[in-house]
Amino acid sequence: MRLFRYLGLLVLAGLAGFWLLTRPERLDPSSMSGMTGDAARGQLVFAAAGCAACHAAPGAEGEARLVLAGGEGFASPFGTFYAPNISPSPDHGIGGWSAQDLANAMQHGTSPEGQHYYPAFPYVSYANAELGDIADLYAYLITLPVSDTPSRAHDVGFPFNIRRGLGLWKWLNVGKGWVMADPGDAQVARGRYLVEALGHCGECHTPRDALGGMQRDKWLTGGPIPGSSKGRFPDLTPNALKWSAEDIAYYLETGFTPDFDSAGGAMADVIQNTALLPPEDRAAIAAYLKALPAN
């Protein structure tokens, strides 16, 4: 009898621990008070963060890339995730959101309803985005065209379809801070912000562990492309990437490699965004990549 009582307590303690560990986190409600976003600056944040690459409708080109209807699918070992509608539609997008809702989504992966997002949404990277940039991005996003396309449900099986469990995943992977602890100078620091936070380059170019977390000790060393038998995301560290800083910056501007082959696949989308950034930002990304440790 007594044994059962202890076991019962143990189960209760376990449940309480699970409940605490898996609770979706949010910003302090006053953390963005007094901030007014600047939509023009937000347009650059939008390009740097690559929002359209995932949230524009599949195959959208030109102006259509500003209609963030969602629908693009992302294969993973855990199932297929579909980018949601983040146009300013009140019913199907983020029309009813505040800037703080966007910040909770980007920095904590928590929805306005207090649910965990799946990390196909790169909040592990965006966690390092500055609140001022998020306020600017919000100001820009709400100026974009409305789409009333409903978001498609993710195709994810048990047990990954239990969102609460994502709290444990987040506990393991979110909030680790910068990978490059000491950038040394202001240019590399800017590059670190663009690569590690907004650009979320590590989400593809860093190999993942069995649970799908980025292996920070193998930062930007490349990895297999999910759903592809032979393709690989290339290693961006000086071990493999021998291009000069000028060549890297030029690639991010035009898509041309030093041999004047051109970027293809998902990287062609990325170049569409990096081409919009000021030249100093592309140079900063290049400086950061050159400053990565070679091992």
């Binding site: 080109e61 035009t254 051109s262 696949g265």
Partner: peptide, 12 residues
């Protein structure tokens, strides 16, 4: 730049 974008458009 626009030539690069056109190359990338097809290669993508």
């Amino acid at each position: 730049g626009p030539v690069g974008a056109a190359c990338g458009g097809c290669h993508k």
